[in-house]
Simulated scan of single mutants.
Amino acid sequence: MDWLIAILLGALQGATEFLPISSSAHLRIAGLFLPGAEDPGATFTAITQIGTELAVVIFFWRDISRIIGKWFGSFSGRVPKDDPDVKMGWLVIIGTVPIVVAGVLFQDLIRDQWRSLWITATVLIVFGVILGLCDMLGKRVKTLETTTYRDGLLIGLAQVLALIPGVSRSGATTSMGRALGYERPAAAKYAFFLAVPAVFGAGIYETMQAVSEPSSVGLGWGPTIAATVVAFVVGIAVIKLLMDWISRRSFLPFVVYRIALGTVLLVALAAGWIEAG
């Protein structure tokens, strides 16, 4: 049963990681209905996210490998320091610093208090509204190439909010990008780049912790690895669908979904149908 549950959770992780609807919230909610799953926990979530970030690396491999190559090349003088790809390398580094600091400082909150379903339901609604307003009112004049260091840092600060289940990493960073005037594809692409070091870092850290504390991997190593593989496969397909969607349409369906899901959760919690955990 653990294997089946893990595969289902892995598919859910891959399907929701890149959409602005919060994968961690969906894994948390799924634990209420899958027998024996309960709350999959921060460790399971972080490890399976390695699979989805591998999907990002594969999908954007040409961009990512070029950025890394030119960034290193700028130190030897082979590449001008003002090259756009060198700049993007620094933007990713600068934008990653806030979540690294927050992740270290707020470990206990991430693993415990912030996983309350009351918080999850509330932020699903609140950040759904924020996403809708930013997408509707934000200008569409800035491209990825015009990203400034100030904007990169602000989007990185927004990524910190993703430590709270229900906020959504892509939702928070994309909302900030749209509020700053970036086109939807540009905001989403920078959000993808920004997530890679943060998620890999968190996943590797949680994996090392789990090696020393096997009990923290609730479903066991085998099922968790299987879930990570499934998340990778599903994630690649979802990235393609999302990039195609936002090049022509708005985030409105995701906004409506977030508000509806959060409302249903609040009603269920208030009525005592489910426990906050």
Rank of each mutant, 00 (worst) to 15 (best):
F192M: 10
L194N: 08
G218T: 10
A191R: 02
P185Y: 09
G177Q: 01
G201A: 08
G201C: 06
S212A: 15
C134E: 00
G152E: 09
A195M: 05
G235W: 01
T224F: 03
T207D: 06
K240N: 07
T224C: 06
Y205Q: 10
I155N: 12
L163S: 07
V217N: 02
L163F: 06
K189N: 12
A231S: 14
A162S: 15
M243V: 11
P197D: 11
G152I: 00
A227Q: 02
G220K: 04
L137G: 02
L133S: 04
V141H: 12
Y205P: 02
L219I: 08
L180Q: 06
M136K: 15
P165W: 04
L137K: 14
Q159T: 10
T224M: 07
P165E: 00
E145G: 11
G181D: 02
G218D: 09
L153I: 13
G203K: 09
R140D: 10
M208V: 15
L153K: 12
K189H: 14
E206D: 13
T174L: 14
Q209M: 12
F232C: 13
A227M: 08
T207Y: 05
V233H: 06
R184N: 04
L180A: 09
Y205F: 14
R178V: 12
A188T: 03
S215G: 13
L242R: 05
P214C: 04
L219K: 08
V233K: 00
T224P: 00
G235L: 07
D135R: 03
A226W: 07
S175V: 06
G201Y: 08
A187R: 08
T174R: 03
R140A: 08
G171P: 02
T146D: 14
R140S: 13
